Simulated scan of single mutants.
Amino acid sequence: MAGGDADPNLSRLLRCLAVRGVDHLALLAGAGGSPRLAWRLADDSLWIGGVVAKPTAVFLRHDVFAHMADGRAESRARAGRWYQAVLSWALAHEEVAFPNRAYGARQATKPHILRLAARSGLAVPETLVTNDTEAFGPEEAAGWIAKPVNGGEHTRPLDDALADAEWRRRAGAEPTIVQRRLVGPELRVYRVGERWFAFALRSGALDYRTDARVEVAVVPAPAPLTAPLGRLMDGLGLDFGAADFKTCPDTGRHLFLEVNSAPMFAGFDRVAGGALCGAIVDWLAAPA
Rank of each mutant, 00 (worst) to 15 (best):
A6F: 08
D7A: 13
L10K: 01
L10A: 08
C16R: 08
L17T: 09
R20E: 15
H24P: 04
L25C: 11
L28H: 08
A29I: 08
S34Y: 07
R36M: 10
L41G: 03
D43Q: 10
I48K: 02
G49P: 00
V52H: 12
T56L: 07
H62L: 15
H62D: 13
V64L: 14
A66M: 00
A69H: 06
G71F: 07
R78L: 15
R81H: 14
A85E: 09
A85F: 02
S88W: 02
W89K: 00
L91V: 01
A97W: 07
A97S: 05
F98I: 00
F98E: 01
Y103C: 02
R106K: 08
K110R: 07
K110E: 13
R115T: 04
A117R: 01
A123W: 01
A123S: 11
N131E: 11
F136A: 05
G143P: 02
W144K: 07
E153S: 14
R156T: 13
A161P: 04
L162K: 05
R168C: 15
A171P: 02
A173W: 02
P175W: 14
T176A: 06
I177P: 00
I177R: 03
R188L: 05
R195N: 05
W196A: 04
A200N: 06
A200E: 15
A205C: 12
E215R: 07
T226V: 12
L229R: 01
R231I: 02
R231T: 08
D239L: 12
F240P: 00
T251G: 03
G252P: 02
H254E: 15
L255E: 15
F256A: 03
V259W: 02
S261C: 05
A262F: 13
P263F: 10
F265R: 00
R270H: 15
V271L: 00
G273L: 05
G273I: 05
G274V: 09
A275I: 12
A275V: 08
G278C: 13
I280Q: 14
P287K: 04
